[in-house]
Computed example of a mutant assay.
Amino acid sequence: MKTHSQESAAAALVADPAWFPFSLDAVSDALLFARLEEEGLRAASFLDQRALGATKERRQVAWDGAAAAVAGDARRDVHYIFHIGHVGSTLMSRLLGESASVLALREPLLLRTFAEAMAAGRWGETEIRDRLSILTALLSRTFRSDQRALVKATSFTSEIADRLVPAGSRALFLHVGARTYIETILGGDASRQELAVLTPGRVARLAGRCPGLVLNLDRLTEAQKAMVGWACEMTSLSRSADVLGPDRVLWVDFDAFLAEPVGTLMEAAAFLGLGMDAAEAERLVTGPLMRRYSKALEYEYSPALRREVLGDARRRFGGDIEAALAGLAALGQRWPAIGAAIGRSGVG
């Protein structure tokens, strides 16, 4: 039985948007809140362990206690950015987050916990709906009534994108063509290391949408693993887009954004209901954010440097990339989900 003091503590945490719902302990079903003021939330590239410094205040309450403190009529209007990874989603989040009417939140750990728990079948359907309602309310909190939360999710959270976007809210789906994606992944040491870790899970996820698909992990080149990553994440987004419908999803090709940044940024802002004129968009896309690495602003990463990275990957892995793209085309001929993804973004 919860005491009055426990109920009051949970209510205080839920009422204050500076107490961010950081993580959920699967064993104790306790929700950890971390205190991050507005500027801290805006600055964080990742709302996971990297944001949880030793000096941050933390409070833990039972999930049921936090849920009971959420009013039935609480705001549930958070917008989302979903993506396939390494396609400018953090940059888009930062650009849109420059608006005073946006509270940009990047990669909350709690979303990953939900995606993993739902994939593992930890909760029944009724409990999933109840928990998602509470999660949505917690992520919709802002510091001012004229703000709206915009959550940029981790890539594999796209598996539950259609369950996360609440009624009346919208989502940006960021992507690039398969060739650009593969070159991007092969162009960086960190992304290649990440690729090795993510590939087994991606193979399993992709096979779930492509019955009969069997891939031998030990025989895949790095380029083929990157191709599998593209196919997995694109088919994940496509499935969610089919459920949400075209009125609630705007597909944004990152290469198209770089070619026409002002128009693309204005289109994304308008889709989300944000007021942004051409002058403001021009100021943002010619400002420092476009010349920095969005996940770590202390490093330079301009569109010109990106072109150099992609060109270097083509020179070093050109044969493997072409073979991977040919393999992707063959997969698209056999499995409609992959074929539809190719139809949207292209192979080459």
Rank of each mutant, 00 (worst) to 15 (best):
A153V: 12
R131P: 00
E298H: 13
Y181L: 15
A71R: 15
V151H: 01
L186C: 09
G188L: 10
L164T: 01
D73G: 04
L328T: 07
V228N: 05
A296L: 15
A313D: 07
G168L: 06
T136Y: 02
L36M: 15
T3D: 09
L206R: 07
A270N: 10
A66V: 03
C210N: 06
S158I: 04
L258S: 06
L186E: 11
A10L: 02
A279I: 02
V27L: 12
R58V: 13
A161P: 05
A68D: 10
G121S: 07
L265C: 09
P303V: 03
A9R: 15
G327I: 04
E57H: 05
K225H: 06
G85I: 10
R334S: 10
A51M: 10
I84C: 06
V61Y: 09
A62R: 12
A66K: 01
L305I: 15
L213Q: 05
A304P: 11
H79P: 00
A54S: 14
R50T: 06
K295W: 09
E222N: 11
T199D: 04
V78R: 01
A270P: 13
D146T: 03
A207R: 08
T113D: 12
G327T: 08
M290R: 12
R179T: 02
P211L: 09
D146W: 12
L272E: 03
P211A: 12
R316Q: 13
P200A: 09
R334N: 08
L32N: 02
S191V: 05
G124Y: 03
A100Y: 00
F173G: 02
N216G: 05
R219Y: 03
D277I: 01
A71E: 14
M234S: 10
A34V: 13
L110Y: 03
G275R: 11
A43W: 07
A279R: 14
L138M: 11
V243L: 03
D29C: 10
S240E: 10
R141W: 03
M1W: 11
I160S: 00
Y293P: 04
P200M: 04
D25N: 14
